[in-house]
Amino acid sequence: MAFSFPYQWFPKSITSKSRTIIKDGQTLRPLLATTLSKDSVSLPFEAIVDSGSDKTISFEEIGIALGTNFSNEKFRAETEIKTGMPFEDEIFGLGKEPIKVFITLMNIEVTGHKQTVRMYWIREKFDPHSDFALVLGQDSIFSMFDIYFSKRQHKFFLNEQVFQPDSAQK
């Protein structure tokens, strides 16, 4: 089965003579409802599907709000064993400065498909002006579905079946 998701339009506004005018900035982004869950806590988040990101990323304060205790020594030790990675690490974006993160396991669910993924929690303040609460990268959603982006049609597709371009031309 294929699931299609309309791109979400983000309008741009300008203020002129104390009036707000909405303009079409042509900003369309692929957003996907993704449920994060751990133990008995679960909540759907609107995530951005980012094929340019190697990792699935959120923010420390969001992890704390979902009940994760990043300071608990026992939890840190157990998580390192489960992930096979250091609990504290650094990742790099397009800037030159490394970004400090915690790495834990998190359960995600998209259109009924569940998977446990490594979540990279950025140890900086979440800023809703410039950040998305959840970024789905290559290590999660792209392993669960074949994803096809059609900006022209203003939507993207998640395909449960393996997409084969040769068969599509027959």
Binding site: M1, A2, F3, S4, P6, Q8, L31, T111, Q153
Partner: peptide, 23 residues
């Protein structure tokens, strides 16, 4: 979205949560 093209029979359309908001 999709220039008014109707989804195929096996295609399930799922709008985003923000789609409930006006511009």
């Amino acid at each position: 979205p999709g220039d008014g093209i109707m989804p195929k029979k096996e295609e399930v359309v799922r709008p985003s949560g923000l789609s409930v908001l006006k511009p």
